[in-house]
Amino acid sequence: MSLKDDIEFLYWEGVRAATPEYLSHSFWKEHPHLCDLFSNPKKKNYVFALGKAAHSMVLSFLDFFPVDAGFVLTKYNHLPDEVRSKGQMGVLKCREAAHPIPDYNSEKYSREVLSELMDLGEDHQLIVLLSGGGSSLFEIPESGLHLENLIQLNQALLKEGLPIQEINRRRKEFSAVKAGKLLGKLNPLVKVYTFVISDVLGDDPNVIASAPTYPGSEYYLMGNLSNSLSAIQKKAMDLGYEVKTISDSWDKSSEDTAKRAFMELIQANSNPNKQVILFGGELVCPVFGDGLGGRNQEAALRMAILSSSLKIDREWLFLSCGTDGTDGPTDAAGGIIGPDSFDLMIKRGWDPRAELMRSNSYPILKDSNALLFTGATGTNVNDIIILLLAERNS
């Protein structure tokens, strides 16, 4: 395989290790008491799947347990076409809304599912399947506020490039369903179980999807970024790479990420062997211009600029991608650049530094064939950053 094949293969290995299908077998095996509860014929299982991984999480749950009714609320283009057109999948209602900023459908469908949840009685048990992206998808304004107030708030918070912990803390103040407030609207006799695939560093249940059912429900972590990085590391070693893992909780800016990767590239070049430098987390990226891009694409563009004057006698590639398949408000998972990327951008008439100042990484990377398009991956555990160095020819 080529170096490009290897880096994409390793990214997909990280994604695979965070999918509900992969995680579920070991998780349910480790929790037999839950299996007994959800197989109890005297109780009705109502499933509320929320987030970017909602569809794949509910499919995985259906592989193990019966479901009497439910609701899937996910991001636009995250449902199969047939399910989207019908709005239904068996006993499950299926809806899509906006991310990362709520829209009319966010509130409309949130009120629709809330109405169903409020009708649940003591013969029901509510299973909440939660993944990243739920903060904007599930949203009802607090009394006295309007959706437009929340849209403006989200736009301002995201433009600042704040950490998700701070963004979600502010979101909770204006929401009628976040920070455990959803539970206060339900029949207290309904037992609630929450199962999470975490897209938050440290897996803080107060932060993931802005915690609609925390505190108050039984809460279980099914998977996170560490699963992905461990799988990548193992597969890279199988392929003959030496592996250096920097961090599984990287929370720096796109700028700092590119600087660190560039430093690692220089240091790694003294070693002639095949190498993987790996880290993951949640990049932050303030928006300064009117361009189109995302935090991972900006990291890739910055790496292309930093490495433009570096000449080393071996192949290398740098990947920065979101595990959900979408980076910012774009249809790309992120970017992959190498030693020739900057020159290609110039050759095609771009000024990389000018586009960087406009926060306009998407068009320049797309025109340079430096974007990775995956579509919705069915999971969401933050960002994966991989630096690959080929073996130096003697």
Rank of each mutant, 00 (worst) to 15 (best):
I127L: 10
V128C: 07
V128N: 00
L129M: 09
L129Y: 07
L129S: 08
L130T: 02
S131V: 03
S131A: 03
S131Y: 02
S131N: 04
G132A: 12
G133F: 05
G133W: 07
G133Q: 05
G134E: 04
S135L: 00
S135Q: 01
S136L: 06
S136F: 05
S136Q: 07
S136W: 06
L137C: 01
L137I: 00
F138G: 01
E139V: 08
E139T: 11
E139G: 00
I140L: 08
I140E: 04
P141Q: 00
P141N: 01
E142H: 03
E142A: 09
S143Q: 12
S143G: 04
G144W: 07
G144D: 07
L145A: 04
H146Y: 06
H146C: 06
L147P: 07
L147C: 07
L147V: 06
L147D: 05
E148T: 10
E148P: 01
N149G: 05
N149C: 10
N149F: 06
L150C: 09
L150P: 06
L150H: 08
L150K: 06
I151L: 04
L153Y: 07
N154Q: 14
N154I: 05
N154M: 13
Q155W: 10
Q155G: 11
A156E: 14
A156D: 15
A156S: 14
L157T: 08
L157I: 01
L157P: 00
L158D: 09
L158I: 15
K159Q: 15
K159V: 12
E160V: 10
G161P: 13
G161S: 12
P163S: 13
P163T: 11
I164V: 15
I164Q: 11
Q165F: 11
E166W: 11
E166V: 14
I167H: 00
I167A: 10
N168P: 04
R169P: 02
R169C: 05
R169A: 14
R171E: 12
K172Y: 03
E173C: 07
E173A: 14
E173S: 12
F174T: 00
